[in-house]
Nucleic acid binder design. Structure first.
Lengths: 138, 138
DNA sequence: TAATGTCCTACCAAAATAGTAGGAATTAAT
DNA sequence: ATTAATTCCTACTATTTTGGTAGGACATTA
């Protein structure tokens, strides 16, 4: 399951996606409209900024905005940044790989099935974008 | 990600699947062969027994065995019993549904995408069985 | 009745999650 | 220049989940 933090991230990103191309949006505005704890949201937005999904402006008239088009931000990317691995086991993760203890990867049947499951999930999450989230709203 | 407990469960079940139709296998044997902490494994096997995936026999010559064919135990079932929900959000879980706070399910675009992701994952996990795990070993 | 096994209840330490607090740094307007 | 507005940084904290352990009760077989 995705953490609450990840759910907040999606809501905030969806909010910013609707404002793409317009003025930056203040953290406090997003927190209020999306009902996310303000200080917690701060942390989330900084993380998203650090991986260049968002850009920020300080001082009056400042706030956050998407750095790239909502059509170019897929759901897998967001999950990986805030939540971590998408795969069900560390030994089948593409971005957070860790070797299994006590398991021969060549012959492990569990691993083979988890790779199939991972690919099936990724096929959706890598294709769907923030834009799909906001157009699906109507 | 699946918990370590769930990984242990899969290993134990795979072990028992290879012994399907034969004599029951002692917990201590499984713990030793699969390198799983004995007392932890006890808990796991009891849980699997409580949902009728396993049956047990006490006393000398006792142990655990699969109650039904490895071909009839799919991976989604095992994950749900030991790990919990497969869906990425509580509000799209079929077996562990919980309503989102502050979100209209009819119009939520995040939810719509997570349903698609869930279905894609389930299509694999509900089709693949313990038997697929053990035949994939070779 | 003794030995062999599962089963039950309870506990515990470490890690992850979900925040909060307080102020430093930067920018823009006056 | 000063002030106000805003993000950014460091650190702390409470709660929940994870990954076990301990000890003995209960059931079965020989």
């Amino acid at each position: 399951m995705l953490s609450k933090k990840t759910q907040y991230a999606f809501r905030a990103l969806a909010h910013l996606a609707l404002n793409y191309g317009k003025d930056p949006v203040r953290i406090s505005t997003i927190a209020l409209k999306e009902k996310i704890p303000l200080k917690f949201l701060e942390n989330i937005l900084v993380e998203l900024k650090n991986v260049d999904l968002l850009e920020s402006k300080k001082g009056k008239g400042g706030g956050y905005s998407l750095k790239i088009s909502p059509k170019k931000i897929n759901l897998a990317t967001v999950i990986r940044v805030i939540n971590g691995p998408i795969a069900l086991l560390p030994c089948v993760s593409l971005n957070f790989y860790e070797k299994c203890t006590d398991c021969d990867e060549e012959t492990c049947g569990i691993r083979k099935m988890m790779i199939i499951a991972r690919d099936s999930t990724l096929k959706v999450l890598e294709k769907k974008t923030l834009n799909d989230i906001i157009i699906a709203k109507d």
